[in-house]
Amino acid sequence: MSGTEKSKAHAEQAMGKVKETVGRAVGNERMTAEGRAEQAKGKARHAKEDAKDAFRP
C-alpha cells in the first residue's frame, strides 16, 4: 500500500472516530452518523489498497 493512501485512510478513520465521539458527547445524532460514515469510508479505502497490493507482482 502506498504511504500516502495509507495515511489518508488512517486519518479519515481517526477524524471519523473524533466526530462520532463529539457527536455522542453533545447528543448530536447527525454528527455521530457522519463520524461513522467517515470511519467506514476510511476502512473501505484501506481495503481497496490492500486488494491492489495483493495483485501486485
Rank of each mutant, 00 (worst) to 15 (best):
A11V: 08
G16T: 05
A9R: 03
E49K: 15
E29N: 04
K52C: 02
R24L: 07
R36G: 09
R30E: 15
A25V: 01
R45D: 15
A40F: 09
G3N: 05
G3I: 09
S2M: 10
A47Y: 12
G27F: 03
A25F: 00
G3P: 01
A14M: 15
R36M: 06
A44W: 07
R45P: 01
A25N: 09
E12P: 00
A9D: 00
R56H: 12
E12R: 09
K17W: 08
G27A: 04
A51G: 01
Q39L: 03
A37D: 09
A37F: 09
A14G: 04
A51P: 02
V22F: 10
R30I: 14
K52R: 12
K43E: 13
K19G: 02
A47I: 12
K41Y: 01
D50S: 07
T32E: 15
T4N: 12
D50P: 01
E29L: 03
D50G: 04
A40S: 13
P57N: 12
A47S: 10
Q13H: 07
K19M: 15
H10T: 11
D53A: 14
E20P: 00
K48C: 04
H46G: 04
S2L: 09
K41T: 11
F55L: 11
A25S: 07
E34P: 01
Q13V: 15
T21Y: 10
K19C: 05
R56N: 09
V26I: 15
T21D: 14
T4L: 14
T21W: 08
A44S: 03
V18D: 08
R56M: 11
E5F: 11
T4Y: 13
S7A: 14
A33C: 01
K48H: 11
K19V: 09
K8W: 11
R45Q: 15
A44D: 06
K52Q: 08
H46E: 14
G42Q: 02
V22W: 09
A47F: 07
M31F: 05
K52L: 06
D50Y: 12
F55C: 03
Q13W: 13
D50K: 14
A14R: 14
T4P: 02
V22K: 15
G35S: 00
A25M: 06
G35C: 00
E20W: 02
K6C: 08
G27M: 07
E12Y: 07
G27C: 02
E29K: 13
